[in-house]
Simulated scan of single mutants.
Amino acid sequence: MSFKNKNFLIVGASSGIGFSLAQSLIEAGANVFTASRTQPNLMANFFFWDAQNPDSNTFNELPTILDGLIYCPGTINLKPFHRLSNEDFLKDFQINLLGAVSVIQANLSRLKAAGNASVVLFSTVAVQTGMGFHASIAASKGAIEGLTKSLAAEFAVSKIRVNAIAPSLTDTPLAKTLLSSPEKIEASNKRHPIGRVGKSEDIASMAKLLLSDDGSWITGQIFHVDGGMSSIRMM
């Protein structure tokens, strides 16, 4: 997979999956641009950007060609349905969906100019597999899956591929409260048929494939990188 001198924008690369992916692409010789509220410790060009207050002008200084766009921001707002407010839903939709819409719209001409660009978005296993207390995040990430398929159809004529990855619980700063003790880690490991929760590198590897020439015939797909959570029931 050759990434040398290709241009990639990763939104949300300050930690977790986005950080791991940025590191991997930089090591492969790519030109990586990151956007988030916190500057990551990476040899990459950084733009301040806030998913709750998106500013399309943030990206004015990007190159005229983008070979890939990856939108990583997400939320884990787990509450009983009766305790979820309209504000909870709106915040999750803003960060998970509308932030992605804003970034894609701001960079669409750059993606078209590449002639073979790839967009990678992120859903969650909770969209396909019903889970209690996930109403708000599953609703907003479900919208991401709909957006993925719609944009894949619309952008195909421009040779822009659009795919999404739907992980299960992954050991990142976003999930720290769910993995805050050995007991919680052990319980979470046991819930996954493969016997462990995900690592950021597990998900970043899939994203890297979708950005590469090896993934050039893949579009409109939702990839369940989830340790078997969505498809396997152990005896």
Rank of each mutant, 00 (worst) to 15 (best):
P63M: 09
I95Q: 06
F133S: 10
W217A: 14
Q39V: 06
K184D: 00
T124K: 04
S158P: 02
W217P: 07
S14L: 01
I222T: 11
N41F: 12
H134G: 07
I137A: 04
K190M: 12
K149A: 12
A44H: 01
P73W: 00
T177F: 09
Q128M: 10
F93M: 14
A175M: 15
F3V: 01
G132Q: 12
S123G: 04
L21M: 11
N7K: 06
L98M: 14
Q23R: 10
E186F: 10
D50Q: 04
A138H: 07
K141A: 04
F122Q: 01
F46M: 11
L90A: 15
L178M: 15
E61C: 06
L169F: 10
K6A: 11
K184Y: 02
T170S: 08
L111C: 10
A143P: 02
T219G: 08
F33Q: 04
M235N: 00
P63Y: 03
M235R: 00
F33A: 06
N77V: 14
T219I: 11
S102G: 05
G195C: 09
A106E: 05
V101D: 02
I95C: 03
T64M: 10
L69R: 00
L98A: 01
L147I: 08
K176V: 13
G74D: 01
G132C: 12
M43D: 15
E87I: 09
S123M: 02
S123I: 01
F93T: 07
V127A: 02
K112H: 11
A13Y: 01
I95T: 05
H192W: 02
M235C: 00
I10Q: 02
E154P: 02
N163H: 11
G16E: 08
H224S: 03
S56C: 09
D92K: 05
N189S: 09
S56E: 15
R191F: 07
Q128N: 11
K141Y: 04
K159A: 15
S216H: 14
S140M: 11
K141W: 03
D67N: 14
P80H: 03
Q23K: 12
A139Y: 02
S180M: 02
D92S: 13
F8K: 05
G68W: 03
Q128P: 00
T75L: 07
K149M: 15
G130M: 09
K79E: 13
A207E: 05
N45H: 13
E61T: 10
S14N: 04
L209K: 05
A135F: 00
T129A: 11
P80W: 04
I76T: 10
F47T: 03
S200R: 13
D202W: 07
F223R: 00
N53D: 14
L179S: 06
K208H: 02
N116P: 00
L78Y: 13
S216P: 01
L151T: 03
R191M: 15
S180C: 08
K91W: 01
N31S: 07
A143C: 08
Q23S: 14
D92C: 13
S14E: 04
S56K: 15
D50H: 06
K176I: 11
D88I: 06
L209S: 05
D55H: 13
F81M: 09
L121R: 08
E61G: 09
K159E: 15
A51R: 01
G115V: 01
V162L: 08
I144T: 04
K79L: 15
D214L: 05
V157Q: 06
N57I: 03
N189F: 05
L211E: 10
N7C: 12
L174G: 09
M1P: 03
F19L: 15
A187K: 15
L42Y: 02
Q52P: 01
V103N: 06
